[in-house]
Design a protein around this nucleic acid. Structure first.
Lengths: 122, 122
DNA sequence: TAGTTAATTAACCATTTAGTTAATTATAAT
DNA sequence: ATTATAATTAACTAAATGGTTAATTAACTA
């Protein structure tokens, strides 16, 4: 599993790590601040380990200041991940098209009974 | 690790599984055909297992025809994955901008020494 | 009916992962 | 010099992952 993409996807395959990255959307933060929301569910060393996984995957960078470690997002690997997934876009859009078509058929059959369905989040 | 997004990313975090999905870009295929390129590296049951991971993650659908199982891509989960990643786009684009700026500075310093660097793959 | 083909399931093994508690490092503060 | 704070490392455990070979299921074929 040593290749970059695998490492990136593996890092993202954990809700705690995704939440940590989401927290970092707001900006740089210290380990202890990042850890705070998780300390009911897990220990500090557990968070440290998750951060280490993110760091090894190149998704965060740490900088040292006194006894604090400040973390920030490094999103570059996410570009490669999204580029890989992008190959499949036509497939999911196609299936939405089929859904649209299906829904239109339904509507046609329902004739004058009013419209209720439609593709959401588009 | 039961949530959908985690399952999707975990499924993608393996080069064999990504290669299987890539093969399916060309269209529907039987398990035995999909397996062929990998049988030097691993056994058929190993491939079966990878396909099962993809199936559980909802990334492929299997249909039965006699003793053959035909697999096809179901890309819908990839939309959620890419939507999640999309939140970070500004971050990687921003860092490319910084790189551009840096490279411009370098160029400026090099003055008349000619241009050699620039952002690649854009 | 017996044999072949396609694929899965079972049983097992080694490695990795995600967590724990306890100990350690490094810096700051009194 | 001692103590407190921030974070990591060490040592351990349970469960998940990715692979194996052997056995089994299910359908077609002669």
């Amino acid at each position: 599993m040593t290749d970059h993409l695998s490492q990136t996807f593996a890092a993202l395959a954990d809700p705690t790590r995704r939440a940590l990255l989401a927290d970092l959307l707001k900006g740089e933060a210290y380990v202890s601040d990042l850890a705070k929301p998780f300390l009911k569910e897990m220990s500090l060393p557990a968070v440290t380990k998750h951060l280490k996984v993110l760091e090894k995957a190149g998704l965060i960078k740490k900088t040292k200041a006194a006894q604090w470690r400040s973390c920030q997002i490094n999103a570059a690997p996410l570009k490669d991940a999204t580029d890989w997934i992008e190959q499949y876009r036509e497939f999911w859009e196609e299936s939405f098209d089929r859904l649209d078509e299906y829904l239109k058929t339904i509507q046609a059959k329902k004739k004058t009974k009013g419209s209720k369905n439609g593709r959401s989040k588009t």
